[in-house]
Amino acid sequence: MGIVQDFKAFAFKGNVIDLAVAVIIGAAFGKIVSSLVEDVITPLLLNPTLKAAGAENITKLSWNGVMYGNFLSAIISFLCIAIVLFMVIKAAAKMQKPPEAAPVAGPTQEQLLAEIRDLLKNK
């Protein structure tokens, strides 16, 4: 029974559950970002640029049997995803509230008593 209890304690710790939720949400967010890049950014920005350069189907580019077009396509896709993620993270950081400044601490009781003492001495 010790192994079952140990596993239960491990599996239901808060950080393990939080990690599982983060992985699931990350996978869903990855699909959203991939769709944004493949379905919106690529047709609007990348395809016209490739047509102007005369390389409409970049994945078919090759040189002496080396299919470097696939590699270039993967690099371009990575850069697009990285830029989109950077912009999303930057926007999310702006939407978060800035941390509240710590309240300014007033004078201590000893400081107040010293001021009163000094005022009484001056009279």
Results as ranks from 00 to 15, higher is better:
1 M>R: 12
5 Q>H: 04
5 Q>M: 10
7 F>Y: 10
8 K>R: 07
8 K>C: 03
10 F>T: 01
11 A>I: 02
11 A>W: 03
12 F>C: 14
12 F>V: 11
12 F>R: 12
13 K>E: 02
13 K>I: 04
15 N>F: 08
16 V>P: 02
17 I>N: 08
17 I>R: 11
18 D>A: 09
18 D>N: 10
19 L>K: 10
19 L>S: 13
23 V>A: 12
24 I>R: 03
24 I>E: 07
24 I>F: 06
24 I>Q: 05
25 I>M: 10
30 G>K: 08
31 K>L: 07
32 I>F: 12
33 V>R: 04
33 V>Y: 05
34 S>A: 10
34 S>Y: 11
35 S>Q: 13
37 V>E: 01
37 V>I: 10
38 E>I: 01
40 V>G: 06
42 T>Y: 12
42 T>E: 15
43 P>I: 11
43 P>V: 03
44 L>Q: 08
45 L>I: 14
45 L>T: 14
46 L>Q: 07
46 L>K: 00
46 L>R: 09
46 L>E: 06
48 P>C: 06
48 P>L: 04
49 T>D: 01
49 T>F: 10
51 K>S: 05
52 A>V: 12
52 A>L: 14
53 A>L: 10
53 A>C: 02
53 A>N: 09
53 A>M: 05
54 G>R: 07
55 A>P: 06
55 A>W: 00
56 E>Y: 00
56 E>G: 00
57 N>D: 10
58 I>H: 00
59 T>L: 01
60 K>A: 06
61 L>V: 06
64 N>S: 05
64 N>W: 09
66 V>L: 15
66 V>K: 12
67 M>V: 01
67 M>F: 02
68 Y>A: 00
68 Y>F: 15
69 G>V: 07
70 N>F: 12
70 N>E: 15
71 F>D: 08
71 F>S: 12
72 L>H: 07
73 S>V: 04
75 I>E: 14
76 I>E: 05
76 I>A: 06
77 S>C: 05
78 F>I: 00
78 F>S: 05
79 L>A: 00
79 L>M: 06
82 A>K: 07
82 A>W: 05
82 A>L: 09
83 I>R: 04
83 I>V: 13
84 V>A: 08
84 V>L: 11
86 F>K: 10
86 F>P: 01
87 M>V: 13
87 M>Q: 13
87 M>E: 10
87 M>Y: 13
90 K>E: 15
90 K>I: 02
90 K>T: 13
91 A>S: 12
92 A>Q: 07
93 A>Y: 06
95 M>Q: 11
95 M>L: 14
96 Q>W: 07
97 K>Q: 13
98 P>Q: 03
98 P>S: 03
99 P>K: 13
99 P>R: 10
100 E>V: 08
100 E>I: 06
100 E>R: 04
101 A>F: 02
103 P>R: 08
104 V>F: 09
104 V>W: 04
105 A>I: 15
105 A>M: 15
105 A>H: 15
105 A>L: 13
107 P>T: 08
108 T>M: 10
108 T>K: 04
108 T>L: 04
109 Q>F: 02
109 Q>A: 11
112 L>Y: 06
113 L>T: 06
114 A>Q: 15
114 A>L: 14
114 A>E: 15
115 E>N: 02
115 E>K: 09
119 L>C: 04
120 L>P: 11
120 L>C: 12
121 K>Q: 08
122 N>P: 11
122 N>F: 04
